[in-house]
């Protein structure tokens, strides 16, 4: 990995200085970027007092879980919010893995009339900003289907994204066609080929897809705001928002809520870091 360092084996003094300075800059950047999260955690450990102008410090003055208690007591449904988020995110993730997985495979490896046109249709809609879709989609879900305050309203529109189809297609195109052909000759039907050959070989891309979809769904805020009004149907992001607007001076409990909303993603990240980091680059590869 001697990109800048001279290709000779022994590090020279100037190289050591370069490495040290780089590390210092990288470290400062990391501290700056992690600061809001650190600040969130220490403020959440403060006491739940009304504190619009309280003295903010970098070192926690109190370490108490009172603010977490305060946040959970704000609504009878605060645990339900977390459950709702989990239900919605899991359904959306399962739907995307299955629906986009199948469609991506079919677009890549099965030849049928109209497949190119259909695939292009998906690609083009990836360019359309969400603002265009949001209003008619709202009218469809709320006015036509009358799905206000239901899980269906939260889950259905997200069940399959064009991006995930694109991702799956890009990956399955690289699988050797011979394997699929020989399976076919051995009498495998297409569903068997998918479950026994394609899915196991695409484990990485399917996991990446599952993780990014779960994260987007968990963090989604705009769509739930539009279709949910009842307190018990709120997702955690929505619950946190209503807490923020109703208790605009209770900062410590607000931070406690923010921590709670972020915690599941952090846990997932540390458990499955490889897939998260891979997920970032996998979509950026030029098609």
């Amino acid at each position: 990995m001697s990109v800048f360092l001279k290709s000779t084996k022994r590090m020279q003094r100037s190289d050591r200085v370069y490495v040290a300075v780089s590390l210092l800059i990288l470290l400062i950047a990391a501290v700056v970027m992690l600061f809001p999260l650190y600040f969130m955690v220490i403020t959440s450990l403060d006491r739940p007092v009304e504190a619009a102008s309280a003295n903010q410090t970098l070192i926690p003055r109190y370490v108490t879980l009172e603010s977490y208690k305060f946040f959970f007591q704000f609504s009878d449904h605060s645990l339900r919010w977390i459950l709702n988020s989990a239900i919605v995110a899991l359904c959306v993730t399962a739907g995307n893995v299955l629906v986009a997985g199948l469609a991506g495979y079919a677009f890549a490896k099965i030849s049928f009339r109209g497949s190119r046109i259909l695939f292009w249709m998906f690609l083009i809609t990836m360019m359309i900003p969400y603002q265009v879709i949001q209003i008619p989609l709202y009218m469809l879900i709320i006015n036509t289907f009358k799905l206000r305050d239901t899980y269906a309203a939260l889950i259905l529109p997200g069940l399959c994204t064009a991006y995930n189809i694109f991702l799956m297609k890009q990956f399955t195109t690289t699988l050797p066609t011979e394997i699929l052909e020989s399976a076919k000759i051995d009498g495998c039907s297409q569903p068997q080929i998918f479950t026994r050959i394609v899915a196991p070989l695409s484990k990485t891309v399917l996991s990446v897809m599952a993780i990014t979809t779960f994260m987007d769904s968990w963090n989604n805020f705009l769509w739930p705001t539009l279709v949910i009004t009842k307190d018990e149907m709120k997702t955690i992001q929505l619950g946190l928002t209503s807490f923020r607007f109703q208790n605009s001076t209770f900062f410590a409990p607000m931070m406690a809520g923010a921590c709670i909303a972020a915690l599941p993603m952090f846990i997932l990240f540390f458990a499955l870091q490889k897939y998260f980091l891979e997920g970032v680059t996998i979509g950026a590869v030029k098609g």
Partner: peptide, 16 residues
């Protein structure tokens, strides 16, 4: 370290 803030939702970050 650089990716951690990306994980937090827009709601979380804007509150902080």
């Amino acid at each position: 370290a650089y990716y951690l803030p990306v994980l937090a939702s827009g709601v979380t970050l804007s509150i902080v």
